[in-house]
Design a protein around this nucleic acid. Structure first.
Length: 256
DNA sequence: ATGGCAGGGTGGCCCTGA
């Protein structure tokens, strides 16, 4: 089984990139972030033609937005992070796939805009994510978190000097919460198989990609039973090298 | 150490992203 996550920075602009990724990598489940359209505007037909069923969560105003594309049967179990006081932000989608795999797609708040309150919102969102991860792991079900976490977990996860030390993506409190997810028993799939490789999932528009000045902020975290089945994981940089790309590249993993 | 990009919505610029 293959899982993948891709921040597309507008799915309507990037439908071709997604289609080519599906054809090349053949994931069973692909989670999208920053779809930036309402659910009814999601270009589902483009993907249904390839055998993928879509479910999108959107919001008015062209911001945020998450979705799943699946070629295995699935049920949607949540369209908001539990504890979310109905703030209307489309950042979370949780499904149960055929066979019992429970997987959540998340688009964590960036935390750099909106001043102190913007950062506080990010940290509160991570607190709720910690509560959720704890509950799911306590329930002993095959569980995975995939998405744009907007956190560089360690100094190995960004090009030197790529961010100011005060940036919300490297904020000590955000990093501490990411580590707490790992302490609960989730495995960072990419680092489990590639502990010290220079691996990034985001490069700013401009010369950053060809200079490989990037960030690793898109992650796949696996519960214990899924981590035991992990046989491969990587960043697919091909979509980032295509014309008119997203600023992110997809991350995928394969489970035995 | 930022917006010099890029996308979207609104209205003929502003906000957000990271």
């Amino acid at each position: 089984m293959r899982l993948a996550t891709f921040n597309v920075n507008s799915v309507r602009q990037r439908a071709g990139h997604v289609r080519r990724f599906l054809e090349r990598q053949q994931p069973d489940l692909l989670f999208l972030q920053e779809t930036r359209c309402r659910a009814e505007e999601f270009p589902r037909l483009e993907f249904e033609a390839l055998g993928y069923r879509a479910h999108a969560v959107g919001q008015p105003g062209g911001r945020n937005g998450v979705a799943v594309l699946a070629r295995v049967p699935f049920a949607v179990v949540a369209e908001a992070l539990p504890g979310d006081a109905a703030d209307g932000q489309a950042r979370y989608l949780e499904i149960v796939a055929e066979g019992g795999l429970r997987a959540a797609c998340l688009y964590l708040p960036n935390g750099n805009s909106g001043g102190e309150e913007g950062l506080a919102y990010k940290l509160r969102w991570m607190d709720r994510l910690l509560d959720l991860a704890e509950a799911r792991l306590d329930a002993f079900m095959p569980f995975a978190l995939l998405g744009d976490f907007n956190v560089c977990p360690t100094e190995e996860d960004l090009a030197p000097g790529a961010l100011a030390p005060t940036d919300a993506l490297v904020h000590p409190e955000a990093r501490a919460r990411f580590r707490a997810l790992l302490f609960f028993g989730l495995t960072d799939a990419l680092r489990a198989l590639h502990p010290h490789d220079r691996l990034y999932t985001y490069w700013d528009y401009g010369p950053a990609f060809e200079e490989n000045r990037g960030l690793r902020i898109d992650h796949i975290l696996l519960g214990p039973d899924l981590a035991e089945r992990l046989s491969g994981c990587g960043v697919d940089v091909a979509p980032r090298a295509e014309p008119q790309p997203s600023d992110h590249a997809p991350v995928w993993c394969t489970l035995r």
